[in-house]
């Protein structure tokens, strides 16, 4: 039976991650709590809006209402990476060689590993940011499409157009596909080799959580009463194929998904705080946590594949141990 070690915090949990195998919880007030032989807390932003788990550097990158970008490392080391003035930092992402991207209004910034900062102005707001897994390249989700920049080189960005407001984006782990979340209840995808479109719609709600399964064979998503899992194993992605629907419930919505690091299994968090794990092959489900006080907003598996750290909108966070 899985066991849950709860951690009751005050406020909305923006990110729940393992740093050096220690569970960390970043809350909207900018406090980052960790369970490291007792509960310890450090302060990042004054108002934390966005967070990105930079796995390569084992750190959490945060941006917030104070217009600043911080890096939080295991052990409680907090360092300010950048400051962009009075405007909110609404999106952050980590990339290769210690590069960090962040967005403020219509401008995307890249801070390279050496501290040098480069600006990328856009005609519309920068809604979401993500680095490509290959090369020094990052994407911006924006109104009517996405823009791909090559920050280390001069030259024109690549524009990918699709009508509507794109609010977030992710590259597939092999870099072949780019998928955006949209203001409307849909995902949009591009096959980057030829620009082919993939329209993934039918969600009853907005999609706010995406997670690639091992080797990018599947993309799990929230925004429905089940986790919607699209097949990306073939060269054309999910075009013409139906997604899996895992962990369907009648009375609540999936708010967060996190794929297992090595198996075709996804952890599914719901609006009522319940967490389950579901297997792709046979849709078998295991209950990991009973409903709680708030919607699940963040989850991550540890390297040993035995624990899941989770956070909620109401602050009732914790760690699920599935080995027990």
């Amino acid at each position: 039976m899985p066991t849950v070690a709860p951690l009751d915090l005050e406020g909305h949990c923006v990110a729940a991650v393992f740093l050096n195998d220690v569970p960390h919880f970043a809350l909207a007030d900018g406090a980052v709590h960790r369970l490291d032989n007792g509960q310890k807390t450090v302060q990042a932003n004054d108002g934390l809006l966005a967070a990105f788990h930079d796995a390569a550097n084992d750190r959490l990158i945060t941006g917030g209402e104070d217009g600043k970008v911080f890096a939080v490392k295991a052990g409680g080391e907090v360092s300010e990476l950048a400051s962009a003035g009075k405007k909110w930092i609404t999106s952050v992402a980590g990339g290769p060689q210690g590069a960090v991207a962040y967005a403020s209004g219509k401008t995307a910034f890249v801070r390279f590993g050496d501290g040098k900062i480069k600006e990328f102005a856009h005609p519309r707001s920068v809604e979401g940011l993500a680095f490509s897994p290959k090369g020094m390249r990052f994407g911006v989700a924006r109104y009517n499409g996405a823009t791909l920049h090559f920050p280390a080189a001069e030259g024109k960005p690549v524009e990918l157009e699709w009508a509507g407001a794109h609010t977030g984006l992710t590259f597939s782990p092999d870099g072949a596909f780019l998928v955006t979340t949209m203001q409307e209840n849909a995902l949009h995808g591009w096959k980057l080799a030829d620009g082919k479109h993939m329209r993934m719609s039918g969600y009853p709600g907005k999609v706010k959580s995406l997670s690639w399964s091992v080797k990018g064979k599947w993309l799990a998503s929230s925004g429905a009463p089940a986790a919607i899992v699209w097949p990306f194993a073939s060269k054309d992605g999910p075009m013409g194929k139906a997604p899996l629907e895992l962990g369907t419930r009648g009375n609540t919505m999936v708010t967060c998904v996190a794929c297992h690091p090595s198996q075709d299994v996804v952890a599914i968090g719901y609006e009522d705080g319940m967490v389950i794990a579901a297997r792709f092959a046979d849709a078998k489900e295991v209950l990991l946590r009973r409903p709680g006080k708030g919607a699940i907003t963040a989850m991550m598996w540890d390297k040993e594949e035995g624990r899941i750290v989770f956070g909620s909108a109401a602050g009732d966070c914790g760690v699920i141990d599935i080995t027990a």
């Binding site: 909110w88 609404t90 209004g105 219509k106 707001s125 809604e127 109104y143 203001q183 409307e184």
Partner: peptide, 25 residues
């Protein structure tokens, strides 16, 4: 909070279905 007015047309073919994207955020 300073926010750039950002008008989004909804992708439903209706020209009057507009929202302020920045306000949502």
């Amino acid at each position: 909070v300073e926010s750039d007015e950002e008008i989004y047309e909804m992708n439903n073919g209706c020209v009057c279905c507009t929202v302020r994207g920045d306000l949502i955020r």
